[in-house]
Amino acid sequence: MLIFRYRDGTNLNLAVRVEDGSAYRLEASDLMALVRQARAAGQTTEEYVRSRLRESRRIEAPAHSLDLATPLDAPEVWAAGVTYQRSREARNFEAAEGRTDAETFYDKVYDAERPELFMKSTAARTVGPGERVCLRSDSSWQVPEAELGLVLDRTGAVVGYTVGNDMSCRDIEGQNPLYLPQAKIWRRSCAIGPFVRLAETVEDPYSLGIACRIYRDGAKVVEETANTSQLKRRLDELVRFLKRDNELFDGTVLLTGTCLVPPNQFTLRSGDRIEIEIEGIGTLANTAVYANEIEPELVSE
């Protein structure tokens, strides 16, 4: 069961796509309001939505053909780093200036009890499916990072799963670990969507296939695949550390790290199309552009 939002003129509507592919408009204002309504009724969100389907208006157009938006306005997006061996290797390559045999602080955090967690984005900096993500003007080595995203409530309970793109500047991060915020956070440096799959409908979040494809001038130039079974950290472990002496907000998204890193010689260019697919959740597609290529009226978003 997939929750999504779509634009209908000036309206932003919440909807659900069920197993047979049909979609229905929901009356709740947003995903977290839907979750609260379900809890008030003493039901899981899935049970509540199913109980309301007969009263919901069916959407005749296929969900993928709609003007999709972010599935929720995440007040904060956090991210975890070095949670996969492939990420560890890539971070070491950046920090050790191309050497593969040098031990770095990334090795230490990979094996440490405390995971790496950092603020990634806010609602104003996060875009949805079909929208443009931005490239930094002061970086010459930029990549997308395909990640499973956890949608959390204020207690840290996992409400659902989504697809995330953690845009990253490998050269800036590799120069100095203190540059991490600049390597990770800028306008339109994060994308999520197109759907949130309700947590109670996911039998095993540690067995989801992930793929990242990048197209340039219509030709596929990168294709990488992985599986969440390769995740070293447990999801509840990441949430537990994020909650520690911290305040969470309903709809917070936690990106759980990447196992898909394009080849070291690759960097994104303006016009590249990025597709990130997670099994059972959907495909998030965005086009990368430099900030100064976006029309002036969109710069102030």
Rank of each mutant, 00 (worst) to 15 (best):
I214E: 07
G257R: 12
E295K: 00
E27N: 04
D101I: 04
R125Q: 15
V109M: 07
A38H: 09
N176L: 06
T287F: 00
S56L: 01
R234Q: 15
Y161D: 08
R54F: 04
I185Q: 14
I281K: 06
A38Q: 06
A90T: 13
D272H: 01
V289W: 03
Q230E: 14
A102S: 02
P262W: 00
R57E: 03
D67G: 00
F4T: 09
V18G: 05
R154Y: 09
S140I: 15
A41N: 07
R125F: 13
T267N: 08
A124K: 10
T258L: 02
P263E: 15
G9A: 12
R99E: 09
A123C: 09
E295S: 12
D245L: 03
Q43G: 04
T155G: 07
G271V: 07
T162Q: 04
E224D: 10
T252N: 10
G9T: 14
G271N: 00
Y84K: 13
V202D: 13
N13E: 12
E94N: 01
D111Q: 06
A157L: 13
Y290A: 05
I185P: 11
C190Y: 05
D217M: 01
L198P: 03
L178K: 08
V82M: 09
L254T: 09
P75W: 11
E223V: 05
A211T: 15
A211C: 08
D138E: 14
A95M: 13
S29K: 11
L66G: 01
D111Y: 12
P263N: 12
T10Q: 07
T287P: 00
P144L: 05
T104R: 01
E297P: 00
R52G: 04
C259T: 14
D20N: 09
E297L: 13
E89K: 07
E247H: 15
A15F: 06
Y6I: 03
G98F: 04
A183F: 12
G193N: 11
C190F: 01
